[in-house]
Amino acid sequence: MKDYNIVTPKEEIRISTKDLSVKYGDKLALHPTTLAFPRHQITALIGASGSGKSTYLRSLNRMNDKIATVEGQILFENVDVNQPKINVFELRKHIGMVFQRPNPFAKTIYENIAYAPRYHGIKDKRQLDEIVEKSLRQAALWNEVKDDLNKSALALSGGQQQRLCIARAIAMKPSILLLDEPASALDPISTGVLEETLVELKKNYTMIMVTHNMQQATRVSDYTAFFQLGKVYEYDKTVNVFTNPQVKLTQDYVEGRFG
């Protein structure tokens, strides 16, 4: 077997990193990592806790600024966005993020979605209404909440809150959606709904998703990257990673021998 197996997808690449490394103080949390993510596909980042997968994900929209030292390149639309002169607030409009635990704002369902677009300059009520409806439809939440748009988002169930967070992220019309273990706080039924939603969203968005759940990775993702102790050992089509891994470590992990 090989030491590393990292492929470059044949599809059009939407975002990629070149030798991206992350340090917390002196501690190297992520070794230089080079990965390319195909357009309108879901890539799963798997690995044990502390393997660096969330650290990597959070670096892509610069959420690690001020927390860690991130070196190397993040290539997005032919620009290295890991530079101090890049406007991160603008960047994050294009690279949305959904977090591990649903974090709706203490606002109405409508305001949760409309707040950021309005801040970014869309003041027209009709246009905002349209964004809210469209985002909720895409996140498969519209039918459940269309009569309650002025109720507090905190009254929704966990699964609904997480789909609201997805709606909130896609309301910004990002081209990339980062998902940090989006289903880890949800029950199996909500998880199922969420996964269906993600597969549906693939038509319009390039997604990168950290997950601890290997079944989930096989169910929804097209590509999978396996992280271990701050390094990527294997990156290939999901079906290859799970049925025919080229690296011993990956094989042990996907067969459940550690992790």
Binding site: N61, M63, F89, E90, L91, R92, K93, G96, M97, F99, R101, N103, P104, F105, Y115, A116, Y119, H120, C165, R168, A169, M172
Partner: peptide, 11 residues
């Protein structure tokens, strides 16, 4: 998580 939620939306 609330702070990150806001920042992640480009606020």
């Amino acid at each position: 998580e609330q702070r990150e939620g806001g920042l992640a939306l480009g606020l």
